[in-house]
Design a protein around this nucleic acid. Structure first.
Length: 450
RNA sequence: GGCCAGGUGGCAGAGUGGUUAUGCAGCGGAUUGCAAAUCCGCGUACAUCGGUUCGAUUCCGGUCCUGGCCUCCA
Protein backbone atom coordinates (compact mmCIF):
# COMPACT_ATOMS: atom_id res chain seq x y z
CA UNK A 1 0.00 0.00 0.00
CA UNK A 2 1.50 3.29 -1.04
CA UNK A 3 1.29 6.36 1.06
CA UNK A 4 0.02 9.38 -0.78
CA UNK A 5 -0.32 12.93 0.42
CA UNK A 6 -1.20 16.40 -0.71
CA UNK A 7 2.02 18.11 -1.72
CA UNK A 8 2.01 21.86 -1.08
CA UNK A 9 4.67 22.28 -3.76
CA UNK A 10 2.59 20.79 -6.58
CA UNK A 11 -0.80 21.44 -5.02
CA UNK A 12 -2.04 17.96 -5.62
CA UNK A 13 -2.15 14.58 -4.02
CA UNK A 14 0.85 12.46 -4.96
CA UNK A 15 2.18 9.02 -4.08
CA UNK A 16 5.31 8.97 -1.96
CA UNK A 17 8.24 7.81 -4.04
CA UNK A 18 11.27 7.79 -1.78
CA UNK A 19 14.63 8.69 -3.24
CA UNK A 20 15.95 5.39 -1.92
CA UNK A 21 13.07 2.96 -2.50
CA UNK A 22 13.44 1.12 0.80
CA UNK A 23 14.00 4.16 3.02
CA UNK A 24 12.21 7.35 3.93
CA UNK A 25 13.54 10.49 5.53
CA UNK A 26 11.51 13.45 6.70
CA UNK A 27 12.11 16.71 8.48
CA UNK A 28 9.65 18.59 10.65
CA UNK A 29 10.25 22.00 12.16
CA UNK A 30 10.34 21.62 15.92
CA UNK A 31 9.83 24.22 18.61
CA UNK A 32 11.74 27.35 19.44
CA UNK A 33 12.35 26.68 23.09
CA UNK A 34 11.45 29.96 24.77
CA UNK A 35 8.14 28.93 26.34
CA UNK A 36 5.74 26.04 26.91
CA UNK A 37 4.01 24.69 23.83
CA UNK A 38 0.29 25.21 23.35
CA UNK A 39 -2.21 22.84 21.78
CA UNK A 40 -1.78 24.48 18.37
CA UNK A 41 1.92 23.67 18.51
CA UNK A 42 0.97 20.13 19.45
CA UNK A 43 -0.95 19.53 16.25
CA UNK A 44 2.02 18.99 13.93
CA UNK A 45 3.70 17.03 16.69
CA UNK A 46 0.84 14.53 16.79
CA UNK A 47 0.12 14.54 13.06
CA UNK A 48 3.68 13.80 12.06
CA UNK A 49 3.96 11.24 14.82
CA UNK A 50 1.15 9.35 13.10
CA UNK A 51 3.04 9.69 9.83
CA UNK A 52 6.17 8.35 11.54
CA UNK A 53 4.28 5.35 12.92
CA UNK A 54 2.65 4.65 9.57
CA UNK A 55 5.90 4.83 7.61
CA UNK A 56 7.67 2.65 10.14
CA UNK A 57 5.04 -0.04 9.59
CA UNK A 58 5.47 0.19 5.86
CA UNK A 59 9.25 0.54 5.61
CA UNK A 60 10.42 -0.99 8.88
CA UNK A 61 11.48 0.84 12.03
CA UNK A 62 15.11 1.13 11.00
CA UNK A 63 14.36 2.53 7.56
CA UNK A 64 12.52 5.67 8.53
CA UNK A 65 14.47 8.70 9.64
CA UNK A 66 12.45 11.39 11.36
CA UNK A 67 14.39 14.58 12.03
CA UNK A 68 12.77 17.19 14.26
CA UNK A 69 14.92 20.07 15.36
CA UNK A 70 15.11 22.16 18.49
CA UNK A 71 15.64 25.85 17.79
CA UNK A 72 17.67 27.00 20.76
CA UNK A 73 19.05 30.24 19.45
CA UNK A 74 16.56 32.86 18.43
CA UNK A 75 15.81 36.41 19.47
CA UNK A 76 12.66 35.56 21.39
CA UNK A 77 14.73 33.29 23.61
CA UNK A 78 17.05 36.17 24.41
CA UNK A 79 14.14 38.42 25.26
CA UNK A 80 12.45 35.89 27.57
CA UNK A 81 15.71 35.00 29.33
CA UNK A 82 16.39 38.67 29.97
CA UNK A 83 12.85 39.24 31.19
CA UNK A 84 13.12 36.41 33.68
CA UNK A 85 16.68 37.24 34.60
CA UNK A 86 17.99 33.78 33.86
CA UNK A 87 20.77 32.50 31.63
CA UNK A 88 19.86 31.64 28.07
CA UNK A 89 21.20 28.13 28.44
CA UNK A 90 19.08 27.60 31.53
CA UNK A 91 15.94 28.74 29.70
CA UNK A 92 16.50 26.55 26.65
CA UNK A 93 17.46 23.50 28.72
CA UNK A 94 14.39 23.61 30.96
CA UNK A 95 12.04 24.49 28.12
CA UNK A 96 13.39 21.61 26.04
CA UNK A 97 12.86 19.25 28.96
CA UNK A 98 9.26 20.40 29.36
CA UNK A 99 8.71 20.06 25.65
CA UNK A 100 9.86 16.44 25.84
CA UNK A 101 7.51 15.78 28.73
CA UNK A 102 4.58 17.32 26.85
CA UNK A 103 5.37 15.36 23.68
CA UNK A 104 5.52 12.13 25.68
CA UNK A 105 2.21 12.92 27.38
CA UNK A 106 0.70 13.31 23.91
CA UNK A 107 1.86 9.81 23.05
CA UNK A 108 4.53 10.88 20.57
CA UNK A 109 7.48 8.66 19.82
CA UNK A 110 10.88 10.26 19.97
CA UNK A 111 12.12 11.33 16.55
CA UNK A 112 15.13 9.51 15.12
CA UNK A 113 17.29 12.61 15.40
CA UNK A 114 16.61 15.78 17.33
CA UNK A 115 19.29 18.25 16.29
CA UNK A 116 19.84 21.48 18.18
CA UNK A 117 20.63 24.65 16.26
CA UNK A 118 23.49 25.63 18.56
CA UNK A 119 25.24 22.37 17.76
CA UNK A 120 25.29 23.20 14.03
CA UNK A 121 26.97 26.59 13.88
CA UNK A 122 29.95 25.33 11.81
CA UNK A 123 27.56 23.85 9.24
CA UNK A 124 25.73 27.16 9.04
CA UNK A 125 28.97 29.05 8.50
CA UNK A 126 29.95 26.66 5.73
CA UNK A 127 26.56 27.09 4.09
CA UNK A 128 26.90 30.89 4.16
CA UNK A 129 30.39 30.74 2.74
CA UNK A 130 29.08 28.67 -0.14
CA UNK A 131 26.17 31.05 -0.74
CA UNK A 132 28.51 34.04 -0.76
CA UNK A 133 30.93 32.28 -3.11
CA UNK A 134 28.12 31.45 -5.49
CA UNK A 135 26.82 35.01 -5.47
CA UNK A 136 23.60 34.29 -3.57
CA UNK A 137 24.53 36.08 -0.36
CA UNK A 138 26.42 39.20 0.62
CA UNK A 139 27.86 40.87 3.70
CA UNK A 140 26.61 44.22 4.94
CA UNK A 141 27.31 45.91 8.26
CA UNK A 142 28.18 42.68 10.03
CA UNK A 143 25.13 40.90 8.59
CA UNK A 144 25.06 38.18 6.00
CA UNK A 145 22.02 38.47 3.78
CA UNK A 146 20.47 36.21 1.21
CA UNK A 147 20.24 37.87 -2.18
CA UNK A 148 16.70 37.01 -3.23
CA UNK A 149 16.82 38.41 -6.80
CA UNK A 150 19.83 36.15 -7.46
CA UNK A 151 17.69 33.06 -7.00
CA UNK A 152 15.08 32.96 -9.74
CA UNK A 153 12.78 30.20 -8.45
CA UNK A 154 12.18 32.12 -5.22
CA UNK A 155 8.49 31.93 -4.36
CA UNK A 156 7.80 28.55 -5.91
CA UNK A 157 6.54 26.95 -2.73
CA UNK A 158 4.34 29.72 -1.39
CA UNK A 159 3.05 30.99 -4.72
CA UNK A 160 4.40 34.44 -3.95
CA UNK A 161 6.71 36.14 -6.42
CA UNK A 162 9.52 38.35 -5.15
CA UNK A 163 7.71 41.43 -6.48
CA UNK A 164 4.46 40.57 -4.76
CA UNK A 165 6.22 40.00 -1.49
CA UNK A 166 7.87 43.38 -1.66
CA UNK A 167 4.63 45.09 -2.65
CA UNK A 168 2.85 43.58 0.35
CA UNK A 169 5.64 44.19 2.82
CA UNK A 170 4.35 45.60 6.06
CA UNK A 171 7.60 46.45 7.69
CA UNK A 172 10.31 48.94 6.98
CA UNK A 173 13.22 47.64 4.99
CA UNK A 174 16.52 47.64 6.82
CA UNK A 175 18.89 50.12 5.16
CA UNK A 176 21.68 47.58 4.64
CA UNK A 177 19.50 45.32 2.44
CA UNK A 178 20.20 45.47 -1.29
CA UNK A 179 16.69 44.31 -2.02
CA UNK A 180 13.58 44.61 0.10
CA UNK A 181 12.99 40.86 -0.12
CA UNK A 182 16.45 39.89 1.12
CA UNK A 183 16.52 38.11 4.45
CA UNK A 184 19.08 37.73 7.20
CA UNK A 185 21.29 34.64 7.43
CA UNK A 186 23.61 35.95 10.15
CA UNK A 187 23.48 38.98 12.37
CA UNK A 188 25.96 40.59 14.74
CA UNK A 189 25.66 39.93 18.48
CA UNK A 190 26.63 42.13 21.37
CA UNK A 191 28.37 40.75 24.47
CA UNK A 192 25.10 40.07 26.29
CA UNK A 193 23.63 38.12 23.37
CA UNK A 194 24.51 34.59 22.35
CA UNK A 195 27.09 34.58 19.60
CA UNK A 196 29.83 32.72 17.83
CA UNK A 197 32.96 33.84 16.06
CA UNK A 198 32.56 33.79 12.28
CA UNK A 199 34.36 35.19 9.23
CA UNK A 200 31.96 38.14 9.55
CA UNK A 201 32.54 38.78 13.23
CA UNK A 202 30.84 37.73 16.44
CA UNK A 203 27.22 36.95 15.67
CA UNK A 204 24.33 34.52 15.56
CA UNK A 205 22.28 32.78 12.86
CA UNK A 206 18.89 33.72 11.48
CA UNK A 207 16.11 31.23 12.01
CA UNK A 208 15.71 30.08 8.40
CA UNK A 209 19.38 29.24 8.07
CA UNK A 210 19.26 26.91 11.06
CA UNK A 211 16.76 24.53 9.50
CA UNK A 212 18.61 24.41 6.19
CA UNK A 213 21.85 23.50 7.95
CA UNK A 214 20.23 20.84 10.10
CA UNK A 215 18.15 19.19 7.39
CA UNK A 216 21.18 19.14 5.11
CA UNK A 217 23.39 17.54 7.71
CA UNK A 218 20.94 14.85 8.74
CA UNK A 219 19.04 14.15 5.52
CA UNK A 220 21.20 15.54 2.74
CA UNK A 221 20.52 17.90 -0.12
CA UNK A 222 17.56 15.86 -1.33
CA UNK A 223 15.10 14.17 0.93
CA UNK A 224 11.58 12.83 0.87
CA UNK A 225 9.21 14.86 3.02
CA UNK A 226 9.29 18.16 4.85
CA UNK A 227 6.49 18.92 7.26
CA UNK A 228 5.32 21.77 9.42
CA UNK A 229 2.47 24.14 10.11
CA UNK A 230 0.84 26.05 7.30
CA UNK A 231 2.07 29.32 8.77
CA UNK A 232 5.64 28.31 8.04
CA UNK A 233 5.18 28.11 4.27
CA UNK A 234 6.18 31.72 3.94
CA UNK A 235 8.73 32.91 4.66
CA UNK A 236 10.36 30.08 6.63
CA UNK A 237 10.05 27.16 4.23
CA UNK A 238 10.39 29.30 1.15
CA UNK A 239 13.68 30.56 2.54
CA UNK A 240 14.88 27.10 3.48
CA UNK A 241 14.39 26.00 -0.11
CA UNK A 242 16.21 29.05 -1.42
CA UNK A 243 19.19 28.63 0.90
CA UNK A 244 19.70 24.96 0.28
CA UNK A 245 19.03 24.95 -3.45
CA UNK A 246 21.02 28.09 -4.18
CA UNK A 247 24.01 26.65 -2.33
CA UNK A 248 23.83 23.34 -4.15
CA UNK A 249 22.44 23.21 -7.67
CA UNK A 250 22.16 19.45 -7.33
CA UNK A 251 19.74 19.90 -4.48
CA UNK A 252 16.02 19.59 -4.92
CA UNK A 253 15.50 19.87 -1.17
CA UNK A 254 12.27 18.16 -0.06
CA UNK A 255 10.22 16.39 -2.70
CA UNK A 256 6.99 16.48 -0.80
CA UNK A 257 5.77 19.23 1.52
CA UNK A 258 3.06 18.47 4.04
CA UNK A 259 1.52 21.36 5.96
CA UNK A 260 -0.98 20.99 8.73
CA UNK A 261 -3.89 23.40 9.17
CA UNK A 262 -4.34 25.64 12.16
CA UNK A 263 -5.94 25.00 15.44
CA UNK A 264 -8.26 27.92 16.00
CA UNK A 265 -10.11 29.36 18.95
CA UNK A 266 -13.40 31.09 18.19
CA UNK A 267 -12.41 31.07 14.54
CA UNK A 268 -9.02 32.69 15.07
CA UNK A 269 -5.67 30.99 15.01
CA UNK A 270 -4.44 29.85 18.41
CA UNK A 271 -1.23 31.76 18.91
CA UNK A 272 0.97 33.21 21.55
CA UNK A 273 0.67 36.70 20.14
CA UNK A 274 -3.14 36.67 20.20
CA UNK A 275 -3.06 35.31 23.73
CA UNK A 276 -5.88 32.87 22.98
CA UNK A 277 -3.87 29.76 23.70
CA UNK A 278 -4.02 26.83 26.09
CA UNK A 279 -0.69 25.26 26.92
CA UNK A 280 -0.48 21.50 26.73
CA UNK A 281 0.74 21.57 30.32
CA UNK A 282 -2.38 23.40 31.54
CA UNK A 283 -4.72 21.11 29.65
CA UNK A 284 -2.98 18.04 31.08
CA UNK A 285 -4.13 19.18 34.53
CA UNK A 286 -7.71 18.31 33.60
CA UNK A 287 -7.48 16.01 30.60
CA UNK A 288 -5.57 12.85 29.79
CA UNK A 289 -2.88 13.40 27.17
CA UNK A 290 -4.51 10.70 25.11
CA UNK A 291 -7.72 12.75 24.93
CA UNK A 292 -5.74 15.77 23.69
CA UNK A 293 -4.11 13.58 21.08
CA UNK A 294 -7.43 12.11 20.02
CA UNK A 295 -8.98 15.56 19.72
CA UNK A 296 -6.19 16.64 17.38
CA UNK A 297 -6.78 13.57 15.21
CA UNK A 298 -10.55 14.01 14.85
CA UNK A 299 -10.01 16.30 11.87
CA UNK A 300 -7.87 15.51 8.85
CA UNK A 301 -4.56 17.30 9.37
CA UNK A 302 -4.91 19.85 6.57
CA UNK A 303 -8.33 21.03 7.72
CA UNK A 304 -8.78 23.84 10.19
CA UNK A 305 -9.78 22.58 13.63
CA UNK A 306 -11.51 24.78 16.17
CA UNK A 307 -10.60 24.24 19.80
CA UNK A 308 -13.38 23.99 22.35
CA UNK A 309 -13.67 22.15 25.62
CA UNK A 310 -16.58 20.30 24.05
CA UNK A 311 -14.11 18.93 21.49
CA UNK A 312 -12.03 17.50 24.34
CA UNK A 313 -15.16 16.14 25.99
CA UNK A 314 -16.15 14.35 22.80
CA UNK A 315 -12.63 13.01 22.38
CA UNK A 316 -12.71 11.62 25.88
CA UNK A 317 -16.15 10.11 25.29
CA UNK A 318 -14.88 8.27 22.21
CA UNK A 319 -11.90 6.93 24.13
CA UNK A 320 -14.22 5.84 26.94
CA UNK A 321 -16.17 3.86 24.36
CA UNK A 322 -13.02 2.22 22.99
CA UNK A 323 -11.69 1.36 26.43
CA UNK A 324 -15.10 -0.04 27.40
CA UNK A 325 -14.78 -2.34 24.44
CA UNK A 326 -11.25 -3.34 25.40
CA UNK A 327 -12.31 -3.98 28.99
CA UNK A 328 -15.15 -6.14 27.74
CA UNK A 329 -12.87 -8.18 25.49
CA UNK A 330 -10.51 -9.00 28.36
CA UNK A 331 -7.75 -6.56 27.45
CA UNK A 332 -6.48 -8.21 24.29
CA UNK A 333 -2.95 -7.60 23.03
CA UNK A 334 -2.61 -5.58 19.86
CA UNK A 335 -3.06 -7.51 16.66
CA UNK A 336 -1.83 -6.37 13.26
CA UNK A 337 -3.09 -2.96 12.14
CA UNK A 338 -6.26 -3.63 10.12
CA UNK A 339 -5.89 -3.08 6.38
CA UNK A 340 -8.73 -0.59 6.14
CA UNK A 341 -7.12 1.55 8.84
CA UNK A 342 -3.87 1.48 6.90
CA UNK A 343 -5.72 2.38 3.72
CA UNK A 344 -7.34 5.37 5.42
CA UNK A 345 -4.03 6.65 6.76
CA UNK A 346 -2.20 5.98 3.53
CA UNK A 347 -4.67 8.31 1.87
CA UNK A 348 -3.20 11.59 3.13
CA UNK A 349 -3.52 10.63 6.80
CA UNK A 350 -7.29 10.38 6.89
CA UNK A 351 -7.45 10.01 10.66
CA UNK A 352 -11.23 10.70 10.92
CA UNK A 353 -11.81 7.76 8.61
CA UNK A 354 -9.49 5.62 10.72
CA UNK A 355 -11.37 6.63 13.86
CA UNK A 356 -14.64 5.72 12.19
CA UNK A 357 -13.25 2.25 11.46
CA UNK A 358 -12.14 1.96 15.07
CA UNK A 359 -15.73 2.63 16.11
CA UNK A 360 -16.95 -0.20 13.94
CA UNK A 361 -14.29 -2.44 15.50
CA UNK A 362 -15.64 -1.46 18.92
CA UNK A 363 -19.11 -2.42 17.66
CA UNK A 364 -17.60 -5.75 16.72
CA UNK A 365 -16.30 -6.22 20.24
CA UNK A 366 -19.70 -5.47 21.76
CA UNK A 367 -21.27 -7.91 19.33
CA UNK A 368 -18.77 -10.51 20.49
CA UNK A 369 -16.82 -10.80 17.23
CA UNK A 370 -13.64 -12.74 17.69
CA UNK A 371 -10.46 -10.72 17.18
CA UNK A 372 -12.21 -7.35 17.13
CA UNK A 373 -10.55 -6.25 20.36
CA UNK A 374 -7.08 -7.14 19.12
CA UNK A 375 -7.82 -5.33 15.86
CA UNK A 376 -8.99 -2.27 17.75
CA UNK A 377 -5.87 -2.16 19.82
CA UNK A 378 -3.85 -2.85 16.68
CA UNK A 379 -5.41 0.19 15.02
CA UNK A 380 -4.37 2.10 18.13
CA UNK A 381 -0.74 1.23 17.51
CA UNK A 382 -0.53 3.29 14.34
CA UNK A 383 -2.71 6.05 15.75
CA UNK A 384 -0.71 6.22 18.97
CA UNK A 385 -3.86 5.49 20.96
CA UNK A 386 -5.28 2.76 23.21
CA UNK A 387 -1.96 1.52 24.48
CA UNK A 388 -2.96 1.70 28.16
CA UNK A 389 -5.04 -0.88 29.92
CA UNK A 390 -8.69 0.00 30.32
CA UNK A 391 -8.16 -0.23 34.07
CA UNK A 392 -5.51 2.46 33.94
CA UNK A 393 -7.62 4.63 31.66
CA UNK A 394 -10.63 4.51 33.95
CA UNK A 395 -9.00 4.28 37.34
CA UNK A 396 -5.72 6.18 37.09
CA UNK A 397 -5.11 8.57 39.95
CA UNK A 398 -4.56 8.42 43.64
CA UNK A 399 -3.76 4.84 44.66
CA UNK A 400 -4.56 5.39 48.33
CA UNK A 401 -8.03 6.42 47.33
CA UNK A 402 -8.52 3.18 45.43
CA UNK A 403 -8.45 1.14 48.66
CA UNK A 404 -11.05 3.37 50.22
CA UNK A 405 -13.25 3.03 47.16
CA UNK A 406 -12.99 -0.75 47.32
CA UNK A 407 -14.08 -0.63 50.98
CA UNK A 408 -17.10 1.46 50.12
CA UNK A 409 -17.99 -0.90 47.30
CA UNK A 410 -17.87 -3.82 49.76
CA UNK A 411 -20.16 -1.95 52.16
CA UNK A 412 -22.55 -1.22 49.33
CA UNK A 413 -22.58 -4.85 48.22
CA UNK A 414 -23.47 -5.86 51.76
CA UNK A 415 -26.30 -3.34 51.79
CA UNK A 416 -27.57 -4.61 48.46
CA UNK A 417 -27.46 -8.17 49.72
CA UNK A 418 -29.73 -7.02 52.55
CA UNK A 419 -31.99 -5.25 50.06
CA UNK A 420 -31.07 -2.00 51.79
CA UNK A 421 -31.17 -0.04 48.55
CA UNK A 422 -31.37 3.31 50.29
CA UNK A 423 -27.96 2.70 51.84
CA UNK A 424 -26.59 1.28 48.57
CA UNK A 425 -27.70 4.38 46.68
CA UNK A 426 -26.33 6.63 49.38
CA UNK A 427 -22.88 5.13 48.86
CA UNK A 428 -23.22 5.37 45.10
CA UNK A 429 -24.25 9.02 45.32
CA UNK A 430 -21.45 9.84 47.75
CA UNK A 431 -18.89 8.42 45.31
CA UNK A 432 -20.57 10.09 42.38
CA UNK A 433 -20.09 13.41 44.12
CA UNK A 434 -16.38 12.60 44.06
CA UNK A 435 -16.55 11.91 40.29
CA UNK A 436 -16.49 8.17 40.74
CA UNK A 437 -19.07 5.99 39.02
CA UNK A 438 -19.93 2.47 40.09
CA UNK A 439 -20.99 -0.17 37.63
CA UNK A 440 -22.75 -3.36 38.64
CA UNK A 441 -22.02 -6.21 36.29
CA UNK A 442 -22.27 -9.99 36.30
CA UNK A 443 -18.67 -10.18 37.51
CA UNK A 444 -19.28 -7.81 40.38
CA UNK A 445 -19.03 -4.08 40.85
CA UNK A 446 -16.35 -2.00 39.16
CA UNK A 447 -15.61 1.71 39.33
CA UNK A 448 -14.17 4.49 37.24
CA UNK A 449 -13.34 8.12 37.46
CA UNK A 450 -15.39 10.42 35.28
C1' G B 1 -3.33 44.98 -2.63
C1' G B 2 -0.93 39.87 -3.70
C1' C B 3 -0.97 34.79 -2.34
C1' C B 4 -3.30 30.46 0.26
C1' A B 5 -7.18 27.81 2.64
C1' G B 6 -12.22 26.81 4.34
C1' G B 7 -17.87 27.03 4.29
C1' U B 8 -21.67 19.55 5.22
C1' G B 9 -27.38 17.97 10.06
C1' G B 10 -27.76 20.66 17.52
C1' C B 11 -22.07 19.78 17.87
C1' A B 12 -17.56 17.41 15.84
C1' G B 13 -16.30 15.53 11.15
C1' A B 14 -15.49 12.00 6.58
C1' G B 15 -17.04 11.06 1.78
C1' U B 16 -19.42 10.72 -2.94
C1' G B 17 -21.87 12.43 -10.05
C1' G B 18 -27.47 8.77 -8.76
C1' U B 19 -29.03 4.45 -2.40
C1' U B 20 -26.00 10.91 1.91
C1' A B 21 -20.09 7.83 6.78
C1' U B 22 -18.88 7.81 11.92
C1' G B 23 -19.07 9.72 16.94
C1' C B 24 -21.28 13.01 20.61
C1' A B 25 -25.75 15.24 22.19
C1' G B 26 -31.41 14.47 21.89
C1' C B 27 -36.04 11.36 21.83
C1' G B 28 -38.59 6.36 22.43
C1' G B 29 -37.83 1.22 23.84
C1' A B 30 -34.95 -3.29 25.87
C1' U B 31 -31.80 -4.45 29.96
C1' U B 32 -30.92 -2.87 35.42
C1' G B 33 -33.50 -3.01 42.55
C1' C B 34 -31.85 2.13 40.69
C1' A B 35 -27.76 3.19 37.59
C1' A B 36 -23.54 2.58 34.16
C1' A B 37 -22.14 -0.05 29.86
C1' U B 38 -24.54 -2.39 25.83
C1' C B 39 -28.53 -3.40 22.29
C1' C B 40 -33.00 -1.87 19.06
C1' G B 41 -35.62 2.25 16.76
C1' C B 42 -36.16 7.72 15.39
C1' G B 43 -34.51 13.18 13.37
C1' U B 44 -33.02 18.18 10.43
C1' A B 45 -27.38 19.07 6.32
C1' C B 46 -24.14 19.56 2.06
C1' A B 47 -23.28 28.92 1.95
C1' U B 48 -25.49 31.16 -2.59
C1' C B 49 -26.45 31.99 -7.93
C1' G B 50 -25.68 30.11 -12.70
C1' G B 51 -23.51 26.23 -16.12
C1' U B 52 -22.38 21.05 -17.71
C1' U B 53 -25.35 16.43 -17.06
C1' C B 54 -30.74 11.99 -17.72
C1' G B 55 -29.13 13.35 -12.66
C1' A B 56 -24.59 17.52 -8.53
C1' U B 57 -23.59 18.33 -2.01
C1' U B 58 -19.85 16.12 -5.31
C1' C B 59 -17.36 18.88 -11.87
C1' C B 60 -16.91 24.26 -13.99
C1' G B 61 -17.73 29.67 -13.36
C1' G B 62 -19.51 33.96 -10.55
C1' U B 63 -21.11 35.88 -5.73
C1' C B 64 -21.21 36.08 -0.39
C1' C B 65 -19.01 34.83 4.22
C1' U B 66 -14.87 33.11 7.45
C1' G B 67 -9.79 32.34 8.48
C1' G B 68 -4.50 32.51 7.36
C1' C B 69 0.32 34.26 5.17
C1' C B 70 2.96 38.66 3.16
C1' U B 71 6.56 40.68 10.79
C1' C B 72 7.69 36.27 15.17
C1' C B 73 4.32 32.09 14.82
C1' A B 74 2.94 24.86 14.33
Amino acid sequence: MTFQAYNTLTRQKEPLEPIEPAKVGFYVCGPTVYDLIHLGNARPLVVFDVLFRLLRLEYGDGNVKYVRNITDVEDKINAVAKERGIAIFELTATTTERFHEDAAALGCLEPTVEPRATAHIPEMITLMETLIARGHAYVAEGHVLFDVPSYAPYGKLSGNSRDEIVAGARIEVAPYKKDAADFVLWKPSTDDQPGWESPWGFGRPGWHLECSAMSHKHLGANFDIHGGGRDLIFPHHENEVAQTCAADPESGFARMWMHNGYLSVDGEKMSKSLGNFHTVRDLLEDWPGEALRFALLTAQYRQPLDFTFDLLKQAKASLDRFYNALAQSAEPAAGPVPDDVLAALNDDLNTPQAISIMHSLADGVFRGEKGAGAALRGAGVVMGLLQSSAKDWFQSGDDDEAGEIEDLIAQRLAARANKDFAEADRIRDALKARSIDLMDGPEGTTWRRT
